[in-house]
Design a protein around this nucleic acid. Structure first.
Lengths: 122, 122
DNA sequence: CAAATTATTTAGAATGATTATAATAAATTT
DNA sequence: AAATTTATTATAATCATTCTAAATAATTTG
């Protein structure tokens, strides 16, 4: 646990959401000015591999990182583009039952209008 | 429908699987030597937008394109890395019921050992 | 605790997928 | 067939991410 990694984790813990490496870089640089992009990427990769954070990928966009390591699902709003958490109860278990497979991990991204956008039009 | 697009679609129809733009470029170039990468990308983007093909994204890897436009699910093998189709009956409908949402589209990628790899160890 | 080893960070260049631009060619409309 | 739109080509550019080598920091060992 280096100072840099601690700073990255603190930034992610304080700001709720789904960050790009660039956003984490900017925010971490504010508290740790010497830090460099490669360090951000190294740490994010390591943290994702250790399942301390989760990676979300969208084609045409930089990866995002979710500070919440517990498997869950995501909505990407078709209107505002934001990534929103959703939780489907026992999803992994349901998948295993349905497919008769030993699921190691999964990613489910749903494209629909998010709650905020639905309300804002009403 | 240009000659180039027809060639791309033919290549995708003849070879079953999940291709990268580069693979499609190489295979299409064999039958249509003048073709250029930008044309491949333009057409794949257009086809994906029209839902004639589907795009699969994996972080750290180039996008893949699935010639099968009907929504379905994917396994990425934790051993060989191949992308394999799976079909979960009424998945979209189940999602909508579970989440009380109007799902426009979704992507489900499952990480586990594929059938081929499971057998090959036995 | 000092020395040695190992892992991490930095700085900067490199890579690789994808897109942008401008010019040409093809397709479609009038 | 001329005019307009759309797609393709050639090439350069972009952007996210990784690589390399050197420097620094952290950890382990004597």
């Amino acid at each position: 646990m280096t100072k840099q990694r601690a700073a990255i984790l603190k930034v992610m813990a304080e700001n709720d959401g789904h960050f790009t490496a660039e956003e984490i870089f900017t925010k971490t640089k504010a508290v740790y000015p010497g830090i460099v992009r490669a360090t951000i990427y190294n740490n994010l990769n390591a943290l994702a591999q250790e399942n301390q954070i989760r990676r979300i990928c969208q084609s045409g966009q930089p990866d995002r990182f979710d500070r919440n390591p517990i498997p869950h699902e995501h909505i990407i709003c078709t209107q505002c583009g934001e990534v929103v958490d959703v939780w489907i109860k026992d999803f992994k278990h349901k998948l295993q039952k349905e497919l008769h497979l030993d699921v190691d991990d999964y990613e489910l991204v749903i494209h629909c209008k998010c709650e905020k956008c639905k309300e804002s039009i009403a």
